[in-house]
Each structure stands twice: as structure tokens, then as C-alpha cells.
Design a protein around this nucleic acid. Sequence first.
DNA 1: CGTTAAGTTGAAGCGTCTCAAGATTGGTGG
DNA 2: CCACCAATCTTGAGACGCTTCAACTTAACG
Lengths: 242, 242
Amino acid sequence: MNRFTIRPEPHTQCSACPVRGLAWFEPGSQEDAARREQLRSTQYQAPTGQILFQEGDTLRRAYTLFSGWVIRYKVLKNGQRQVLSIALPGDFIGYRADFGAPLDYSAVAATPVVLCSFSEYNIETLMQDDPTLTRKLIQIQCQQAQECRLRLSYVGQAPALQRFAMFLCELTTRLSQRGIDITQPIDIPLNREDIADAIGVTSVHLSRISADLRKKQIVDCRYNRLIPKDLEALQRLAHDND
Amino acid sequence: MNRFTIRPEPHTQCSACPVRGLAWFEPGSQEDAARREQLRSTQYQAPTGQILFQEGDTLRRAYTLFSGWVIRYKVLKNGQRQVLSIALPGDFIGYRADFGAPLDYSAVAATPVVLCSFSEYNIETLMQDDPTLTRKLIQIQCQQAQECRLRLSYVGQAPALQRFAMFLCELTTRLSQRGIDITQPIDIPLNREDIADAIGVTSVHLSRISADLRKKQIVDCRYNRLIPKDLEALQRLAHDND
DNA sequence: CGTTAAGTTGAAGCGTCTCAAGATTGGTGG
DNA sequence: CCACCAATCTTGAGACGCTTCAACTTAACG
């Protein structure tokens, strides 16, 4: 497996981290964060397209995504890929209760990324020293499970247009939480196939659906750019009130 | 919301619990289990079809399923139901990191069930008293998230026949873990619609697929009974090696 | 047995997929 | 600055899988 490189010094300080409010280290004061920083092993960086880990690996670490976008996915035996989620800055990836067990999904960088790495041992130590971090970790797991259930429900039951609307709603909401103005055009580092694999359709069919949304003046999502036109209509479509 | 009834005394003892090995109280000795039992609020029972909780409820408790089957599901705004998972004895249902937040899914009894109830306060107390229970809880959450990711991947990407095979494989594996002989006919308290809603097809189409598997002498799954004929072929089908 | 709910089967229609040709974009070098 | 290229995206036409609706069959239960 390819290694990613250690990010050049100076590394970011947890006490001044712009995404801490969304991340595992959210609880506590700046001093708490600074103290914990000693147990953050290293910051890594990786280029677009770099596979961060693969299903089946036994990686004894987990990462907080500091910057960039990461695609979590599974590949079926028939070669089809299901995109499980899009990880954005602050998201915790690769964690398992048992680091001895192999990972059940893969992750690839959709942009250049910076990752804050935590070794198994340091995660254990952090949780023993600070029960609020244990609590936060449980909350993160619950949140991820909840998001997965939501995706399962719409991938299983909704027609393609509604699935796409739900995907875009979730994405814009999460981008908005990260301070991005979702009324302006947004660069989206996902191609047609990434999004198609997330909502369980082919990229060809996604193109047609995307054209529908454009003609209806709801969103224009083409060539890695998302131009919201009528976010309320998008939400109505996602939540099936029309 | 309907209440379920308190199970008549005597309640089961955690120290002698037949499903403890699969449940939250798994870690530790029989004495540990007996001590913890004081913080298990009550045992409840509910008949087939009873809704245990609904999406949107703010239930300040969680349950270990002691006996029976429970269907976890979400209902979309368009009325479609996605079955998220089938809970079997030992499974932990209704837990969230924040009991103040509303539930994101519903649960209904597929058989008469007995539930071991835990109040929010008692869960907190148990976890503070015993870090191994915190650890086990994290493990349960990770496991549930992992199962959800697996289902998302096959519901999103596999054709209906393979989805059904995967569903049956998962079910037989879990029944086998609970001591059921899966080479013999098994009563399955799920109707066509339950299974169809789990794998994201209509019950009509599931009937056709089920007929295929029967004709191929792989499994006979009709009228709430599962008769395995060739479990290896089923697994091959589920894992797409043919 | 007769009744009812659930499951099965058939036929037609729709949504999505496949394959293939054209259009758009961003990068590269003249 | 423009021509060209490769990769990605869009569009069209036909095929296939799944859904819908409706009639029939089977199982469960008094």
C-alpha cells in the first residue's frame, strides 16, 4: 500500500483548529485541545486520488479529516462500487472499536487532503484520560449510523430524482455547517460517477436527472460545479412534498 | 403511544441470561451481571405487531431484545417503508448518544417480544461504574454501523436476486450464532412485504425471485418458513461467484 | 369446510440500464 | 492565443428489470 507523506512543519495546532467544533476534539477548552494535541500522532497529506485505506486492511489508526474531501466506499464482488458517504473537514474516518479487525470499507481522497492521525494506543489513552472524549466518540458513531440509515432508506425506496435531491440536500447542509455560502456556486470535487455510485444509479441516468433539475430551475450541477437556483424547491423535492 | 405491559414476575436474571453472550452485558462475570441487573429498569412484553417506538419519539430509554424478533424501519414521506434491520435476541435497540434527540427510526414487534429496559440514567450510571460496558457499547454501535453499510452497498448496487440472497445469508448467519440449526426448516416471522421492504423491491417481484431460488434448489422460502437446500450455493450467489 | 389474509402468477407499462455517438471541459504544446 | 487532445459529460435509441394492477392459488383458522 502506498504511504502518504508527512505534512511539512509546522503542523496545525489543535487549539487553533478551524474545524475542531465539528470534530472529535470538539469538547472542552483550548487548553484541553492543546494538551490532547500531544497524542495526535502526526499530520499527513495525500494527493487527489490517493487511496487512504482499503476494505480488508488492518489499519491501527484513525483520522480526523482536516482539509479536503474523502469518499468512503465499498466495492461489491461484481465490481460495482457503492459510495457510502462523503467525508468533509472535521469528519472522523477509519475508526473501529476493534482495530485488530479489518476495515469494512475503503477511502479515497477526492481532493488533496490533510489528515490528523491518531494511533490506536493514543485513542485509548485519550479516552481514558478524558471521559468527555469517549462520550463524543459515541456521539460520532451514532451520528454516522444515523446518516447511514437515512441513506439506506432513500437508496432503497426513492426514485432516482428524489435520491439525487436528497444527496444534494445533505451535501449543501453539511457544507453550510462548514461556513460555505450555499447560495453561491460551489466547486464540487465529485464527478458524475461518484455521485451516481452514491445514490445507486448509473452516471448516464444521473445525467438525465441532472438535466431535469436544471430545466426545472432548481439546481445546475455540471462539470464539478453546483449552482443552486431554488434550494427550497430542492428540499421539497427531497422530502416529497409536491 | 401504546404502552407495553410489564412482564409478570419473576423476571429473568441477567446472571443466568441465555442471550447475555450476544448482548450489552456480555463483558464480565456472572457476579458482574447480577450487580448490573439492579440498574436494568424492568422487563416488558409486547404482542406481535406492537409498535415499540416511532421515528420522532423522544424515548429516554433503550432496550435489549430478550426474546422474539423486532423490525427496525423508516417510513419515507411518500409512504414507502425501508426495513433497516431485523433485530434478534441480544440486540440493543433504541440507543442514542443523546436521549434528548428524537429517534430516527421506528421499531415494531414481528413476534411476541420480551424487552429488557434501561433508562437513560441507568445507562449513564452503568457506563460510569464499568468502563468495559462503555467499550462494549462502542463496539455494538460500530457493529450496527458496519451492518448498515453492508446493506446500503447491496441495496444500492446488487440486482434483486442477489440482494435477496445476501439478506438470507445475513439472517441465517445470525440465527446460527443464536444456536439455531440452519440446515433444518426455520420459522421466519416475516412476510413477503417485510423482506421486500428490507431489500428494496416490491413483494410481487420478491415472489418471482423467491420462485427462482426454489426452482434452482437453493432455498424454499414461502409462507413464513425457510427451508435451506443448498446453503453454499446461496452464499455463492450472495457473494457473486458464479 | 368456508372465509379471509397472504402469496403467486400473468400481462402491460415505466424507470433505469446499456451501448454508442456527439458535446463540453480543462490541459498541453505549438 | 489558439489548436488539439483526452477525459468527462450529455443525449439518443433500444433492451431489460422491476413495478403495477388484477386474477388466481395457497395457507391458516374458526
